[in-house]
Amino acid sequence: MSKFKQAMETYRKRPLSLFLRIVVIAAAVITAFILGAIIIYILVKGIPNLSPELFAWEYNTDNVSMTPAIINTILMVLLTLVFAAPIGIFSAIYLVEYAKRGNKLVNIIRMTTETLAGIPSIVYGLFGYLMFVIAMHWGYSFIAGALTLAIMVLPTIMRTTEEALKAVPDSYRDGSFGLGAGRLRTVFQVVLPSAIPGILSGVILSIGRIVGETAALIFTAGTIAAIPASVMNSGRTLAIHMYALLNEGLYMNQAYATAVVLLVMVIIINGISGLIAKAFSKRTGEK
């Protein structure tokens, strides 16, 4: 109690401090309040509309099933990562392990990566449409969407991998070189394994972005509500599914239910990334 009184006394003497404290706490409360409102809003509107038909295997206009969209979302994530992950990780390896300091090329790569990171998704959508859909004559297709998204998430993967590689102590590399291993072997057998949790967290960040993306996909992957037979066919992800449901105003309730599923997906993705981060910090803690 005395501590509390003491604090109150201090605040009486220094009203500015009290004011600052209140403002800070108010900001946190407002943030929590808004987030709570959004989540409650989604759950209240969505959960009553969740029904088994919404998860039927095939989409038709009676059940408005989101199963194909969920599978498409997973396929889209995989296909995008097939392109983005190796390129992102390899370029980070180049930047950290191979490039010499002050190399002009490195500066250019850094600059372009930053530019890529700043481009709004709608501009990616336009680009993907112009390049893959029109110029390459692929039409609305899965591959066009995946390539567009791959460019979009490339900077995220590059940056997190770079950070993870930099965090690997130089002693590891020196040790490996000392044992007579070449640079390549050092990278793949010594440096990369210790950087894996960091790299994974970047990949998961990207997955989150792919799952929530709409603007870049409506112009590239199209809106067909079926699992595509090949990468040249169109297919809608869950976020696009929700957009399409809202478009005609016929399936508002189902759209809300879709929002719940999207939310759950995001929570799962975030949960996995949290687990990985924890595993990472535990491991470094041991060392």
Partner: peptide, 10 residues
């Protein structure tokens, strides 16, 4: 983090 992950359409 969840707030950052909510899709913009929502």
């Amino acid at each position: 983090n969840l707030m950052a992950g909510i899709p913009s359409i929502v």
